[in-house]
Structures are given as structure tokens and as C-alpha cells.
Design a protein around this nucleic acid. Structure first.
Lengths: 150, 150
DNA sequence: CTAGTATGAATGAAGG
DNA sequence: CCTTCATTCATACTAG
């Protein structure tokens, strides 16, 4: 791992050697890439390729949704909107009001392992929220993958 | 709790339009409806489709959550637990096919605009607690959408 | 002030 | 790819 970074910060080189990292991630990375990434991540926890795949998929989809116009009820936007999408989508909202997003997204994944109990306010909530589920055994790792664009 | 104070009342015609749906959408309004509803609501504040979508999602989810929680209690001593392990999704304890609900919700949304200074106590409390965040300007409305089905 | 609750928001995981 | 469910987080508001 040439990353050499400490902690949980994995620089995702989705673009691989491809220099087209200009924020244009061509769909989901190849399976190989996913495998690779998941391998790296597996070191920090129980992260399978599946998770990585899901992550990329969701990420891409949501990014698209976010940027997609379809903001709804706009105002006098009589543009030739090609609303052919049969309008069946569910999450293409997001108002155009969304300020322009900085394109310097560095695609940095920050992993917050659940093991690290920050013991913050969340802990309190979690206490009563959980309310003991009989099964103390956490067979299902929540896998709290959290990404942050720096 | 709802002090009975209701602000506006927007009737969402779920089932209206949308490619001849005839009227069979009691569970998920889906885009079209969401867009429409958000249009109506946008008049009262900065309400985007996203918010409406979230609201519906959460509403449904919590309803189900509650149901599940209750049903689990209702089990009492029914050992006939059909924990079909075949399910690989997650830890679905009780998957009892809760009988379909009548779903006779009238789909009436009640909106409580934040501008309304109805709550006398809450206002005071807010002052103390919040202490005005310098920026009195609600540029980014907390979006305290409070809708209730009648 | 602390505890509890309600709800919006975000994301992981599947299903189709 | 798109839709949907489930879970979790964060915050606002209420009550003691």
C-alpha cells in the first residue's frame, strides 16, 4: 500500500492510472478495482467487495441525483426540459438552489470504525434507542462507512 | 405534542394524474406526487422535493418500525418463530406478514410554519437555549417540517 | 441543565 | 441504473 497514510484515510484511485480523475468517475470502477480497494479496506475492518461496490453505486447514483435538475417546480424555467424520464424516479429532487459545488473533490474516504467509540452524545441516544434487542451479539456489522470530501 | 394548533392544510391528491393511475397509491406517492406536493409546499417556505421525499420515507419507515416493535411484543409466547435463515438481508427478527393495512389515510398534510409565533413557552425557551445564533436570518431554514396525517 | 422524544437527513443494503 | 427498506445521526422541542 503506497498510501502510507495513517489512520483511516484511503485515497481512492478510482481512475486507476487514468488521469481522468477530474471528478468524472466513469460509472462504477471495474470489478478489479473494487476488489483491490476492498482488499485495502478489509485491513481496517470487515469490509467486503460487496460493500465497496454498494458504496460506489450509491455514491454515483446520489451524486447524479444531486446534480440532476428535475428540481421540481422551478419557476419560470420553460426550458425545453426533456421530461421523458417518465418521471418515475424518486430521488431526482434537490433544488437547483444548491450552490455550485467545489469541483476539487478529492475522493477521500474516511472510515469510522464502529469500534472506536467516540462516546459522544450519540452514545446516549444509542442507549435508549437500542433498548436491548435481546441479541447483544452484533452479528450484523453496521458498517458505518462515512466519506468526506476534503 | 400537537397542541392542536394547525397552520395550513394541504390536501395532497394522491392518485391524481400520473399516467392514469386510477388511484392505487396509498403507500408510496412516488415522484409525481412528491413533486406536486412539494410545489404546493414550496409556497410556504423553502421546501424541496427532497424534503417531501424524506418525509414520506421516514414516515413509512417509522410506521413500519413501530409496527414491528409492537408485533414483537405481541408474540408473547408464540414460539412459532419462522426465522427463515434464507433471508440474507439482515437481522429481520419478525417478518410476520403483518396484514395489509386498510390504509385509509386521508393524506392530509398539516404544515406548521416556523414563522408562526404560536408557542409562547417554546419561544422563550428557544431564546434561552438558542440564544439567537447571531444570524437571525434563517438563510438555511432548519426545515422543521411538521406534517401530520389526519 | 438533563433526559426523552420526534423528525429530518444521510447512507448502507437489496431488489427488480 | 433506479427504487425501496432499514438503520443511524443530528437536531429541535418538551418535560421534569
Amino acid at each position: 500500500m503506497d498510501d502510507g497514510m495513517s489512520g483511516f484515510c484511503i485515497k481512492s484511485r478510482i481512475g486507476g492510472g487514468g488521469g481522468g480523475c477530474g471528478g468524472r468517475d466513469s460509472g462504477t470502477p471495474s470489478t478489479d478495482q473494487i476488489q483491490k480497494i476492498s482488499s485495502q479496506l478489509s485491513f481496517y475492518g470487515k469490509i467486503e467487495s460487496k460493500n465497496v461496490f454498494y458504496w460506489f453505486q450509491n455514491h454515483k447514483a446520489r451524486e447524479r441525483q444531486k446534480r440532476r435538475r428535475v428540481s421540481s417546480v422551478a419557476h419560470e424555467q420553460h426550458d425545453q426540459i426533456h421530461q421523458d424520464d417518465k418521471v418515475s424516479s424518486a430521488k431526482h429532487f434537490v433544488d437547483v438552489n444548491q450552490v455550485s459545488e467545489p469541483e476539487r473533490v478529492i475522493e477521500t474516504l474516511q472510515l469510522f470504525p464502529l469500534n472506536t467509540f467516540n462516546a459522544s452524545e450519540s452514545a446516549k441516544r444509542r442507549l435508549f434507542t437500542n433498548e436491548c434487542k435481546e441479541t447483544d451479539q452484533m452479528d450484523h456489522p453496521p458498517l458505518d462507512l462515512r466519506l468526506s470530501f476534503l
